[in-house]
Amino acid sequence: MSKQAKIQGGIVFPGERLGVVEEFFPGSGLYQKNGVIRSAELGTIRYDPSKRELAVSKINRSLLLPREGMEVYGEVGSVMRHDAMVDVFILDGKLLPSPYTGIIQSLDGNRNMLMEVRNGDIVKAKIINTKNRILQLSIDSSDYGVVYAYCSKCGMFLENHRNRLACPRCGRVERRKISTSYGAEELN
């Protein structure tokens, strides 16, 4: 059996020596140090003969980290004229064990965030930047925006009537930047 065929599917632990850089290209789940390729993960070895690439696909817990372009859900915290803070609790469809903090900003300064979101609303947004300490989020597309909103007078869930949110209990009408999926999202 060839060396390449042998390694396919084998299970390795972090730190295990798998070869040298002259033999393989290190793919994901690997690292190289002093010309030696080692596993960085607990996982199974995958070898791609066409690329001569070695990789380790992990078998333990996969990490969930925010990346640009990911869809998130969060609860709106404090809202000011030009920005609103959001506690992101769902990242890429998965519930986070601990929330990330995000911010929705009026980048051109012309928008009034107080008219778009309110404290306690659940918003659907997209990550546009992860390079700062807090995630920068955007609700610009029609898909994004508030998905659940509550009446600021009585706390009842607001119903969508022709893009205007009305409270079924007290009749108050409020404005938000709502998502096309307002009220229809299932959040676990």
């Binding site: 972090p14 690292y31 992990k58 333990n60 817990r61 990490l63």
Partner: peptide
């Protein structure tokens, strides 16, 4: 390792 954190 149980937490899935890559290690040397």
């Amino acid at each position: 390792v149980d937490a899935g954190i890559p290690m040397r």
